[in-house]
């Protein structure tokens, strides 16, 4: 299945050439979770503070579906 991933802030450093918010298109086996996606991309799961799938915050054990759009963040704050 095809997944779109956007990485942000300090997580960009795990993917050579990645820029914050620029979508990456990936092929994953059906049934793959967010954790599987992080593993495939070499992003340590413990550095992911908030993960979104289609705009909703999800745990790393969330099972992805074809066409999902994921966005992952380290701890961020501001105001």
């Amino acid at each position: 299945m095809r997944i779109t991933l956007r990485v942000y802030a300090t997580l960009c450093r795990y993917i050579p050439g990645a820029s914050a918010g620029i979508p990456l298109s990936l092929e994953l086996p059906y049934g793959a979770t967010l954790a599987d996606l992080m593993k495939k991309m070499g992003i340590p799961g413990e550095e992911v503070k908030v993960a979104f799938v289609n705009g909703r915050a999800r745990d790393l054990n969330h099972v992805l579906e074809d066409g999902d759009e994921a966005g992952v963040f380290p701890p961020v704050g501001g105001g």
Partner: peptide
């Protein structure tokens, strides 16, 4: 603080 732009956009 503008680090929030992307996370609010994702949400």
């Amino acid at each position: 603080t503008a680090v929030l732009i992307n996370i609010l956009n994702e949400a």
